[in-house]
Amino acid sequence: MRKIVLQRFTILLVMLFLVSVVAFCLPLLSGGDPARAIMLSRVSDMNLAPEAVEALRRELGLDRPLMAQYLSWLGSALQGDFGYSFATRQPVSAEIGRALGVSIILALSALGVALVVALPLGTMAAMRPGGKVDGFTTLLIQTLVATPEYWFAPVSILIFAIWLGFLPSAGWESWQSLILPAMALMLRPMAYFTQVTRAAMRDVLEAPYITAARARGLSMNQAVLHHGVRNGSMPVVTFFALWFAGLLGGAVVIEVIFAVPGMGRLLYEAVVNRDVPMLQGGFVAIVGLSIVINTIADVLYVVINPAMRGSHGH
């Protein structure tokens, strides 16, 4: 286990360095003058006063050589100081912390519900291949995978906010605000979790230890409950971690449609506003967390499955 953690830590450092370089270069890659781009994101008129652009360049330190800008940022970042947002003038780390909190709640809610539905559904489908539940599950999986979030989100607003009036359309002001974005976010992970659970349980149910358990007099349900679910849920743990890491910064569409102040929207607005310090800090946080989450998932994998101890090194 120590080997896994050490290996992941090394990857984390290398990735963070690469991400910092990419994040730093992003505003340059989009073409044009970064100072003009930042100014254009702040004023509605595209005819910019040249003296204002030059003043902004000086104020943000964009008149210094690129390498000096990067090294100065890296030096501060290594001490945990990601600087101040160009847009809000608040410390980047505080803004990211706040947005991450929102995204973690949203992602865990969506994935939690997805898991609660997917595990029993996938297991039941696996127990009767070709049966009614299996057919329904296959249909459901295909439907959910093919349902784009940008379509489902407005439709859910139409139904639950406009027609039924149950839930708020957007914002992040009460627990009710969580429901629609979480619903929209959980569709695809639920489909994948169900599919993975079904496939894993199919393998597990054909394993000799299930046959042995049945031979000892356990019913099919008892055998599945006591011996199957634990083994069948292992791939789901990996999937859960992947989705969780992905949703932390990847729920842009949902966070923009529902005006959720999470990491996706933070990064989206940082791109729109050319908020370089926020982009750098946000990218580093997302990639760092993704690696940490996947490392935890690997460790959990070993904990759940004793057979993997000593052999699991990747």
Partner: peptide, 18 residues
């Protein structure tokens, strides 16, 4: 004042009375 980036969501919020 609420900041709602998506134009369709803004429209929906007037219809719901939010």
């Amino acid at each position: 004042v609420r900041f709602i980036p998506d134009a369709n969501t803004r429209s929906a919020m007037v219809r719901t009375g939010e």
